[in-house]
Design a protein around this nucleic acid. Structure first.
Lengths: 207, 207
DNA sequence: TAGATTGTTAATCGATTAACAATC
DNA sequence: TAGATTGTTAATCGATTAACAATC
């Protein structure tokens, strides 16, 4: 039997459901209906049920879903191991800021180290993880079997650095550089384009 | 005649085209074909042409698009004034980092000021704009007619702060808090959920 | 049993793409 | 004119939603 492929958008939402379930669990809820969970996640109940159906069936008709069991099932379904190692590439303004952001750790991702072409010039005490020169990046990735990288280098260098990441075996890149990266199709790139987000918002401001 | 409504996704892409056109202009290209521009933006030529069609017709059959004129037409079409004022709400790790990020200014957005509940405790010299207490936020928004806010407060406070923003007249929120904000439907919220992005990437890593 | 709520289907909606006539 | 490339339509594809039978 073939497992139907899960749409990318569903994956985002399913992760979001897991987070909502954590909160419900924390608040001592044991069961939750698709309607209540959907409201918490800002989606329609039918969409929630459709999304969950990609992973399996977890509810009981007439009663709803068991909060904690569903949370766990989602984590397993999405293949989340305990603590995923990640590296940060580029330790300028944005990169060094994200290193201090605690939201990643909370969700189970640990940034092992940061790499920067100008590593020598950057104050080490601003940064909570080891900072290395980009020269040793590939070796580090292989040694620690790192699969995920956060890319925060200036646009002009982004493609070149990305090539290095791919060659070293990185499989997923969270790209903050305002550049469209060309990578082999088996590599996943998620773009977070901050200026584009503002641009988009601005469009909806009535003038 | 009714102007067809532009899909949200098209708006993102159109902004991206504008950025590619800037680069082409900088490199002294005067004309560009839909196929070349599409490659630069990582989309299909037919999609590019479809997107542009929402704004008008700018090309010449057989020759392509005039780089600079198209860039300007896009900026006008998306209703971009010169320098849009923005405020930053929350000056913790992420917020203060984004204040130092120069990508916003580059695209024509100026962060006027930052607000934080604990403004008094934060070192002012880390921050390149005036930092105020959240108490005076509403007055500032009204006085400076600010329409856009970047929200970087902890999840627990996000909804409450967002309510304050909406009441003060903010029309668009770029939300970095890992929380689904409930706002009136005329307010636009763009969510940038960093942990969710990593989660999504991780799903595609072959285990 | 009656009420509630899931799992799933089928209908709808919207976005992408291929294709090509128009035309420079 | 021949070649190139747009603007636009129609076909395709995929995602969302309403609806409801299954069933606790």
């Amino acid at each position: 039997m073939f497992k139907e492929e899960i749409p990318q958008k569903s994956i985002y939402r399913i992760s979001l459901y897991a987070r909502c379930l954590e909160r419900l669990h924390y608040n001592k809820h044991e069961m939750v209906s698709s309607s209540a969970l959907a409201t918490a996640a800002g989606v329609k109940p039918s969409q929630l049920r459709r999304d969950l159906a990609y992973l399996g069936t977890f509810g009981t008709r007439g009663r709803g879903y068991p909060v904690e069991a569903l949370r766990q099932a989602i984590h397993e379904g999405l293949g989340r191991a305990k603590l995923q190692p990640v590296i940060m590439v580029g330790a300028g303004n944005l990169g060094s800021a994200l290193l201090r952001y605690d939201g990643f750790k909370k969700e189970g991702y640990e940034i092992l180290a940061a790499f920067d072409a100008k590593a020598a010039e950057i104050g080490v005490n601003d940064i909570p993880v080891p900072l290395h020169s980009t020269d040793v990046m590939a070796a580090f990735i292989k040694e620690h079997k790192v699969a995920l990288a956060i890319l925060c280098v200036p646009g002009e260098q982004a493609q070149q650095v990305a090539n290095g990441l791919v060659n070293a075996g990185i499989q997923g890149v969270l790209n903050f550089s305002p550049v469209v990266l060309k990578v082999p199709q088996e590599i996943t790139v998620n773009n977070v384009d901050l200026a584009l987000e503002l641009e988009h918002l601005n469009y909806f401001v009535r003038k």
